[in-house]
Design a protein around this nucleic acid. Sequence first.
DNA 1: CCAAAAAACTAATAATCGTTAGTTTTGTTT
DNA 2: AAACAAAACTAACGATTATTAGTTTTTTGG
Lengths: 199, 199
Amino acid sequence: MAKIIAGKNGSKKEVISKTASKLFQQKGFSATSMRDIAETIGVEAPSLYNHISSKTELLQEICFRIANVFNAHMLDVENSKASLQVKLKKLISFHIRMIVTEYESVYISDHEWKHLPEPYLSNFKNQRKLYRARFANLILEGIKTNEFKKIDPPIAVLTILSAISGVESWRRSKKITDAAEVEKNMIAILLEGITQKQS
Amino acid sequence: MAKIIAGKNGSKKEVISKTASKLFQQKGFSATSMRDIAETIGVEAPSLYNHISSKTELLQEICFRIANVFNAHMLDVENSKASLQVKLKKLISFHIRMIVTEYESVYISDHEWKHLPEPYLSNFKNQRKLYRARFANLILEGIKTNEFKKIDPPIAVLTILSAISGVESWRRSKKITDAAEVEKNMIAILLEGITQKQS
DNA sequence: CCAAAAAACTAATAATCGTTAGTTTTGTTT
DNA sequence: AAACAAAACTAACGATTATTAGTTTTTTGG
């Protein structure tokens, strides 16, 4: 009856993927059925299989697309000639902007990856590990050049990435004015801390 | 055949709850079946219903138990006579220690609460909101007394709580030495920031 | 306008889900 | 040992799951 209408910018498969992203984020991957996705689009569940091959394929494409974007950006930052502090700011800023522009996908890549089937699961976990190692290495360099304090780099990475991922939960309850405000405050807290410097 | 063996410190129901917590954390609530829980204990699924009334009851008890613990601690901190900075440290420290000692339950309370049925879902979300408001108020007071910088309190709360919840993901891949080390570093980063103060 | 391809449909699969009913086994108390 | 309660079991329920097969409708291209 109803047909999947491809938006101006997006094939039919991308319509399915976008819808799946929304539902995976709202209800979780396991709690989202193919019928849920189909109903949201306005189509019967088996019709989806004319465009995709499986439910997990949807999850895979979301997770690895986001991973690739972050890996590519990390390479950019690494190759740039900025100071370590600027590099760190760039990374934090990019993460926040990604959450703002691609909320659902980033959320899924952060929280639903554990439902990936092997061998994709191991691959994904490995990429994640590697990304954090590169992040930690950047902080380590900053400590060496005395730009950063002598903190444990892995813990710093953990703290920064987790803090950023919290913006996801804000994004829904949008009490706070705009993304730039969040970015400014968060960078200030992470880089300069909360307590007042005694003058 | 096999019987649910109640550990020294825990009724049979608590054995089920502990097992469920482990599986809910590992696989997610929706992806965990009653048969999974039963098999882990070494019993048939219907036997569980001699001790519990439903699967969601398990989730409810986990989520609200953790919520109560945090609410009680918040009250303690509010009533204490310490400085705002010490109060903030107390809160951060307590969160990290809770994650260390009650990893699975805290994780579930943080990530699986969305599967709570109404009216428990609304109740839980409300408690969460209230807790954060109390946390934000604490920071606001600190800004007034000039102990803290002029940052947006809700964003600060978001940043702190998210950063802390990242310890959950560390807890599994325990590369880092011990909890005290994580706590020390994380408090240092959040309170004093990453960048070196220019002397 | 007709043919071919794309994409929808209905019907059905086997598997698994949480849970109930009814029965048997186990443990405790008198 | 007899009686009673607790807790296990088997069998089955109706619902839902992802997915396949086969068919019909719709869209596209010449």
